[in-house]
Computed example of a mutant assay.
Amino acid sequence: MSTERPIEVVLVTGFLGTGKTSLIRAFLEGRDTSRVGVIVNEAGDTGFDGIVIAEGTGESSAVRMLGNGCLCCEAADDLAQSVRDLVARHVELTGAPSECIIVEASGLARPGKLLRQFHAITDIPLQVHVVSTVDATLAADPDRHGEIPVQWAAASSLVLTRRDLAGDDGQEAMTRAWAVNPLASFQSEGSAAERAAEAFAATGRANPLPQVEFAGEVSHGSIRAVTLWQSPGANWDDCTEWLDNLAGIGDERVLRVKGLVSPLSADRSWLVQAVGTTFAVPVPISREAGHVVVIGEDLTAEWFAAIEPAGTFTLPDTGAHSHEGHRHD
Score class of each variant (00 low, 15 high):
G14K: 02
G17R: 01
T18M: 03
A26P: 01
A26C: 12
E29I: 14
R35M: 09
V40W: 03
G47W: 00
F48K: 07
I53Q: 05
A54I: 12
G56E: 10
G56V: 11
G58S: 03
A62T: 12
V63R: 02
R64N: 05
G69A: 11
G69I: 09
C72A: 11
E74D: 13
R84Y: 08
A88I: 03
A88Y: 04
R89D: 14
H90S: 14
T94C: 15
P97L: 12
I101Q: 06
A105E: 04
A105C: 10
H119L: 15
T122N: 00
D123M: 04
H129F: 10
V130P: 05
S132W: 00
A136Y: 00
L138A: 06
A139R: 12
G146E: 09
E147I: 07
A153R: 03
L160T: 03
G167W: 14
Q171R: 08
Q171K: 06
E172P: 00
A173G: 07
M174A: 10
M174L: 14
A179V: 03
L183K: 00
L183P: 03
L183V: 10
A184F: 04
Q187M: 10
Q187C: 10
E189S: 13
E189I: 07
E194P: 02
A196Y: 08
A199M: 07
A199Q: 04
T203Q: 07
T203I: 04
G204E: 03
A206L: 09
E213I: 12
S219C: 11
H220G: 05
R224M: 09
R224E: 07
R224Y: 05
W229E: 09
W229D: 13
G233V: 07
A234V: 05
D238W: 12
T240N: 10
G250Q: 02
R253V: 09
G259M: 05
L271F: 12
A274K: 03
A274R: 02
T277E: 06
A280E: 04
V281S: 04
P282S: 14
P284M: 08
P284N: 04
R287K: 10
I295A: 01
I295E: 02
G296K: 02
A301Y: 06
A301F: 11
W303M: 12
W303N: 06
E308Q: 15
T312P: 04
T318M: 11
G319H: 11
A320L: 15
S322Q: 14
E324A: 15
H326I: 14
